[in-house]
Computed example of a mutant assay.
Amino acid sequence: MPPYALLAIAIVAEVIATSAMRASEGFSRLVPAAVVVIGYGIAFYCLSLTLKTIPVGIVYAVWSGAGIVLITLVAVVMYRQVPDVPAIIGLGLIIAGVAVLNMFSKMQAH
Results as ranks from 00 to 15, higher is better:
Val82Leu: 12
Gly39Tyr: 00
Ser64Arg: 12
Pro55Ala: 12
Ala43Glu: 00
Thr50Glu: 09
Gln108Thr: 13
Leu101Trp: 14
Ser28Met: 05
Arg29Leu: 15
Arg29Tyr: 03
Ile71Thr: 14
Ile38Leu: 01
Val12Asn: 01
Ile71Asn: 14
Ile9Thr: 08
Ala99Ile: 14
Ala17Val: 01
Met78Trp: 09
Gly67His: 11
Leu93Asn: 11
Ser19Gln: 14
Ala66Asn: 06
Gly57Met: 13
Ala87Gly: 13
Tyr60Met: 08
Tyr79Ala: 12
Ala34Asp: 01
Ile71Gln: 12
Leu30Asn: 04
Glu25Asn: 05
Leu49Pro: 03
Leu91Lys: 06
Pro86Phe: 06
Met103Glu: 13
Pro3Gly: 02
Ile94Phe: 09
Leu91Tyr: 08
Met107Arg: 14
Ile38Pro: 00
Val15Trp: 10
Ala23Asn: 06
Ala75Lys: 03
Tyr4Thr: 08
Ser105Pro: 15
His110Leu: 11
Val76Asp: 10
Val74Pro: 01
Leu101Phe: 10
Ser105Ala: 07
Trp63Gln: 08
Phe44Gly: 02
Cys46Lys: 03
Val56Lys: 01
Ala5Lys: 01
Val69Leu: 13
Val74Thr: 09
Ala61Trp: 08
Ala34Asn: 02
Gly26Phe: 04
Leu73Glu: 15
Gly57His: 11
Ala96Leu: 14
Leu70Ala: 08
Leu93Arg: 05
Val56Phe: 12
Leu47Met: 14
Ala5His: 04
Leu73Asp: 15
Ile42Lys: 00
Gly26Asp: 06
Ala61Phe: 05
Val15Asn: 01
Ala5Tyr: 09
Pro83Ala: 10
Leu6Glu: 15
Phe44Met: 06
Glu14Asp: 07
Ile94Ala: 07
Gly92Thr: 14
Ser64Gln: 14
Ser105Gln: 12
Ile95Met: 06
Ala34Cys: 13
Gln108Arg: 09
Met21Arg: 03
Ala10Gln: 04
Ala109Thr: 03
Ile42Trp: 00
Ala75Leu: 07
Leu47Val: 08
Ile58Tyr: 04
Gly41Ser: 11
Pro55Val: 13
Pro55Glu: 06
Ala43Gly: 09
Ile94Thr: 10
Ile95Val: 14
Lys106Trp: 03
Arg22Pro: 09
Val36Arg: 01
Pro3Arg: 03
Gly67Ala: 06
Ser48Pro: 03
Leu93Thr: 11
Val100Lys: 04
Pro86Lys: 09
Leu47Asn: 05
Ile89Trp: 07
Val85Glu: 13
Tyr45Trp: 11
Val37Gly: 08
Ala5Val: 15
Ile38Ser: 00
Leu7Cys: 07
Val15Asp: 01
Pro86Thr: 12
Ala61Pro: 13
Ser64Thr: 15
Ala17His: 02
Val59Leu: 02
Val77Gly: 15
Pro83Gly: 07
Val76Pro: 00
Ala87Glu: 12
Ala109Tyr: 00
Phe104Asp: 10
Arg22Phe: 04
Tyr79His: 13
Thr50Ala: 13
Val98Pro: 15
Val12Gly: 01
Leu49Asp: 01
Ala10Met: 10
Pro86Tyr: 08
Ala66Cys: 14
Leu51Gly: 07
Met103Thr: 11
Ile88Gln: 12
Ala43Val: 03
Ala34Thr: 08
Val82Tyr: 13
Ala8Arg: 00
Val31Glu: 04
Ala10Cys: 11
Leu73His: 12
His110Phe: 08
Leu91His: 05
Val74Phe: 02
Ala17Gln: 02
Val37Trp: 06
Ile16Ser: 01
